[in-house]
């Protein structure tokens, strides 16, 4: 799949933002007043900024409100509802914490739950697609959720919890790659089932339907080469998970190390998300003779 910057920014940063809102809603840290203001400003900048970035990949963003209508069947529509509800509920909670010095515990819990559900709905937009076997596995929501929660803990300054969650998220990340690498083969879809002709190995794409490129080739067919993807996986693991954990467990780690951990995590997160798209093989590539399976 084409790793579009707008979608990478959207899923990475809104995931972080909602992860932070989750912890703030649960009262970790139990901030009020101006400190709370700074925390909420960061959380909303990430969550709302990410959502706005996603609008950049729409062909007709002026009709975006229509995306609220099909929540019965569409995960994208559900995401639209859940994100707005999470942001509104947490806005009430944040307002009281910042300006009235009170934390409305129950409202916070509801906001936290909605934040978590928002990330889950985002993950299901990808996880539901049978056409991309690498994504169509139960670990996809687990992967995106653990990353978002771990990142949220890190931003919320919950050092020990963050270190443990990052280690957990790293394990899920590796498992997601492992299962993903065999997913296309396991899906049973290949050029023989795609065309109904021959058996795998006895059929070969001879001539493409067009000499130039098209929407399908640009959007679905390109995947990153194996050699590069291995290197990028190491970079994502090191920066996104390994280094932040080390920085967090250094005794007496202060704000400077904490900030370094955040920067490193974000760099690793974006790399991981780039790979999430760039490694994903859409089955339509089979018609173009592009997936050897």
């Amino acid at each position: 799949m084409h790793p579009a910057p707008s979608v990478i920014i959207f899923t990475s940063f809104s995931g972080l933002g909602f992860g932070l809102l989750l912890f703030l809603g649960l009262g970790f840290p139990p901030v009020t007043g101006w400190v709370a203001f700074v925390f909420y400003a960061i959380a909303y900048a990430l969550a709302v900024g990410g959502l706005l970035a996603s609008a950049f990949h729409l062909g007709n963003p002026q009709r975006a409100l229509k995306a609220f209508t099909q929540w019965k069947t569409s995960w994208l529509s559900r995401e639209a509802w859940l994100s707005v509800m999470a942001l509104l509920v947490m806005a009430v909670y944040a307002f009281c914490a910042v300006f009235l010095d009170t934390r409305l515990t129950v409202i916070g819990w509801i906001g936290a739950a909605l934040s978590l559900l928002t990330v889950y709905s985002t993950s299901m937009i990808y996880g539901q697609l049978k056409t991309v076997p690498r994504w169509n596995q139960p670990l996809t929501p687990v992967h995106l959720l653990t990353l978002s929660i771990a990142g949220g803990a890190l931003l919320a300054g919950q050092m020990t919890v963050a270190a443990a969650l990052l280690a957990l998220a790293a394990a899920v990340q590796v498992a997601h790659w492992q299962v993903g690498d065999g997913a296309l083969k396991a899906s049973g879809t290949n050029l023989a089932t795609a065309t109904g002709l021959g058996t795998p190995g006895s059929i070969r794409a001879f001539e493409p339907p067009h000499t130039g490129t098209n929407y399908l080739l640009k959007e679905f067919v390109h995947v990153v080469g194996r050699k590069h993807s291995r290197k990028l996986r190491m970079i994502a693991l090191t920066l996104g998970y390994g280094l932040p954990v080390v920085l967090l467990i250094i005794p007496g780690a202060g704000h400077v190390l904490g900030l370094l951990a955040v920067i490193s995590h974000v760099a690793g997160l974006v790399t991981s998300r780039w790979l999430f798209f760039a490694e994903a093989e859409h089955v339509v590539g089979l018609y173009y003779g592009k997936r050897s399976a």
Partner: peptide
């Protein structure tokens, strides 16, 4: 007139039967 051009339907089609028009931004 209701399509926002998000492209998700083309992602969901296994056959590559949908193309987002580059000029109009609709499916």
């Amino acid at each position: 007139s209701a399509c926002i051009g998000c492209g998700l339907c083309a992602w969901a089609c296994p056959y590559g039967a949908r193309e987002l028009d580059a000029l109009e931004g609709v499916m």
